[in-house]
């Protein structure tokens, strides 16, 4: 198996940083799933593709824009009409979907090496993300499990709410290091722990 390397390695410093004397506002980490796969359905085939995602991952994807869900192993959410991002803690998910999704239903794109997955967790997670994205991060507008596509300064980012105070961010791997540094700067004010 190929040894996984992180693009954050030169700037990843575990421990407490910033203004943490009054407590840690957020925890930042890289979640490094083994697989990150993008699935797209042809017009009229969305329901069949969702059924395949449900059967492979045992997640229940609801109808509706941006709906998603996660388990200990998998995460999935809609990020565009008839398009879904699915992650697996193990490698090999793209090969599984390539077998399960016939070309008449849709397409499978392996992004495992193309994206970096970051997690921000803590009482100040919404506050810190709101500095970077023009998005309503409240749980009323951004419910648990759901996902969005947005940009930071024209850099594409997909975000899933992975917990009441937790978000997973998927960014281009080639931009991950600068994005990580920016995320750390944004979290400086509230105090952050890297782990």
């Amino acid at each position: 198996m190929v040894e996984q390397l992180s693009p954050l390695e030169p700037v990843f410093r575990a421990g407490s940083h910033g203004n943490f004397v009054d407590g840690i506002g957020v925890t930042l980490s890289e979640i490094a799933p083994g697989s990150i796969v993008q699935l797209a359905a042809w017009p009229g085939q969305e329901k069949k593709l969702m059924a395949t995602i449900n059967s492979v991952t045992a997640l229940k994807l609801a109808d509706g824009a941006g709906a998603g869900a996660s388990s200990d192993r998998y995460a999935a959410f809609g990020f565009a009409p008839a398009k879904f991002l699915v992650t697996d803690t193990s490698e090999g998910l793209a090969a599984t979907f390539a077998k399960e999704v016939p070309s008449a239903i849709g397409t499978v794109t392996d992004l495992s090496h193309g994206r970096t997955a970051l997690r921000i967790t803590g009482a100040k997670a919404e506050w810190v993300l709101a500095k970077l994205f023009a998005i309503d991060f409240s749980s009323a507008a951004f419910p648990l499990g759901s996902g969005i596509s947005t940009t930071h300064h024209d850099i594409f980012t997909q975000i899933q709410r992975s917990g009441p105070a937790s978000f997973d961010l998927y960014v281009f791997r080639s931009f991950a290091r600068s994005f990580w540094k920016m995320l750390c700067h944004a979290a400086d004010e509230v105090g952050y722990e890297v782990r």
């Binding site: 609801a62 509706g64 941006g66 709906a67 009409p81 009323a140 507008a141 951004f142 419910p143």
Partner: peptide, 20 residues
């Protein structure tokens, strides 16, 4: 509306403050 559709939008998404 979606440019590919003719007529009113059918995909209602989260309007501000709406539930899932």
């Amino acid at each position: 509306r979606f440019a590919r559709e003719h007529g009113a939008p059918t995909h209602g998404r989260r309007k501000s403050g709406a539930k899932a």
